[in-house]
Design a protein around this nucleic acid. Structure first.
Length: 409
RNA sequence: GCAGGGGUGGGAGAGUGGUUAAUUCCAGCGGACUGUAAAUCCGCCGCCGCAAGGCUACGCAGGUUCGAAUCCUGCCCCCUGCACCA
């Protein structure tokens, strides 16, 4: 593990890529401190905490994981921290709403999903997985008081969203203050050198520094990353906003969704989600947006599914979406060719196969000219189908009717 | 416990007895244009039904009424403040 490490400045450049600190002074301080520690030539203890609240991870979640991976590749010691204790309490720090508290079972379930998905990016062999309930759960109330005594209410009210809510006389729970303390204590408990997090976590990371100093430790270096914008290009990626690209999406969908981001997001996607060198990124951005985006989609897809799957996804995109060709592979639906026509109607098949969510929707789709049978626009919902027919709904939903028993599987 | 506010379709949020399957916005879907970009335009957007039409729906259960998301009764849940908890 202790082979020679890369030159400090090289490491620094890689580690600071894509980072975003609240302000310039903070960035300078963090950069200087990070340089100092890298110069010590030892593996740094790095971690990032994840709240096992959501089950579906999206590309936005991968930013910090990718940063951890960079640390790993440079020979540092990475801990994937599961905030199973914090989640038990509910995290109020983001946005202005309070998240629900989850049951221990749900948290466990989510944690497993998280770790599984995280290993698409992190090196399983070199990742330490820990849970903060192990130490937070062991604190006595007295311990908590001692931790709390190092902070003042004013420090919290410096925060934008808390200040805003205070002004509006909206409720602010004491537990919201404690939440930051818990995160801060994580840093103390693990005696970390570096903590990685989203820029919305900056306050919590800084709280870790405060507390470490109080406990006689050297304050950790905080590395924060911007929030990734969603497919709409404006709002941050989030499942509830419906603008997310899931980590678990099949290659074709992943590739396609990346292709749908606005041009204005290209640069940030490149720097945050790929390892392409800056010069190459600049060259791509100077060229045709379409080509740059395809390269982006290829890189991202390859990162999660491997390069051959990514190439295949590009091929699918180019032929099926761009050239409007019929893909060779498509889901199949078994239909008894001998059944009465009413049983074999386009409408029935659309609804029964799941191409349309309901027959009402199937009717709408047909009426709107969204459905093609063997390449011809079909406007009659009642028309019977036969084995061999190929359906296309909208640009990207396909179905091949095959001979089969009864009403199809 | 007391007081006040609130529970409406994926989300936000209108609507306080009758053209309300329910204004509007967001999201979503489809079509046109295109580069699955942006911008723009048009249409759709509870379920069943080829259709006519039917069914279900505004926290739950009843009631008043020709007619209720809208009025009454009971219940459940959420939020906030106060009190209690010495």
């Amino acid at each position: 593990m202790s082979r020679g490490m890369a030159p400090v400045e090289d490491q620094l450049a890689a580690l600071l890529r894509g980072t975003e600190f609240g302000d310039e002074p903070t960035r300078r301080v963090m950069e200087a401190e990070l340089r100092e520690r890298l110069a010590e030539g030892r593996p740094l203890r790095v971690y990032c905490g994840y709240d096992p609240t959501a089950v579906d991870l999206h590309l936005g979640h991968t930013l910090t994981m990718r940063k951890l991976r960079t640390f790993q590749d440079l020979g540092h010691e990475v801990t994937f921290l599961i905030g199973n204790f914090t989640t038990l309490v509910g995290d109020p720090s983001d946005a202005d709403r309070t998240r629900p508290m989850l049951s221990p079972e749900e948290i466990e379930e989510n944690s497993r999903t998280y770790v599984d998905q995280a290993f698409r990016i992190l090196d399983r062999e070199r990742t330490i997985v820990r849970r903060n309930a192990d130490w937070l759960g062991a604190l006595s109330f007295g311990d908590v008081l001692r931790v709390a005594s190092h902070f003042t209410v004013a420090q919290f009210l410096e925060r934008d969203n808390l200040a805003r809510r205070f002004e509006r006389h909206d409720p602010i729970h004491i537990s919201e203050f404690l939440y930051a303390l818990m995160q801060a204590y994580d840093a103390v408990a693990m005696e970390t050198d570096v903590q990685v997090g989203g820029s919305d976590q900056l306050f919590n990371l800084m709280a870790g520094r405060v507390l470490q100093r109080e406990y006689g430790q050297r304050p950790q270096v905080a590395i924060t990353l911007p929030l990734l914008s969603g497919t709409d290009g404006n709002l941050k990626m989030s499942k509830s906003l419906g603008n997310h690209i899931g980590i678990d999406e099949p290659p074709n969908d992943l590739f396609g969704k990346v292709m749908s981001i606005p041009d204005s997001s290209l640069r940030s996607y490149f720097t945050l989600l790929t390892d392409l060198p800056d010069v190459e990124v600049e060259a791509l951005l100077a060229g045709a947006p379409m080509e740059a985006k395809k390269r982006l989609a290829l890189e991202i897809t390859a990162g999660l599914h491997g390069s051959s799957a990514a190439e295949a996804a590009r091929g699918y995109f180019e032929s099926t979406i761009q050239r409007r060709e019929t893909p060779s592979e498509m889901p199949e639906y078994a239909l008894d060719g001998e059944a009465p026509e009413g049983e074999r109607s386009l409408l029935r098949v659309l609804a029964a196969s799941g191409l349309a969510a309901s027959s009402a929707e199937a009717r709408r789709l047909v009426a709107q000219g969204a459905v093609r049978v063997n390449g011809e626009r079909a406007l009659e919902a009642a028309r019977p189908l036969s084995p061999g027919d190929e359906l296309r709904v909208g640009p990207r939903r396909f179905l091949r009717v095959v001979a089969g028993a009864g009403r199809g599987a």
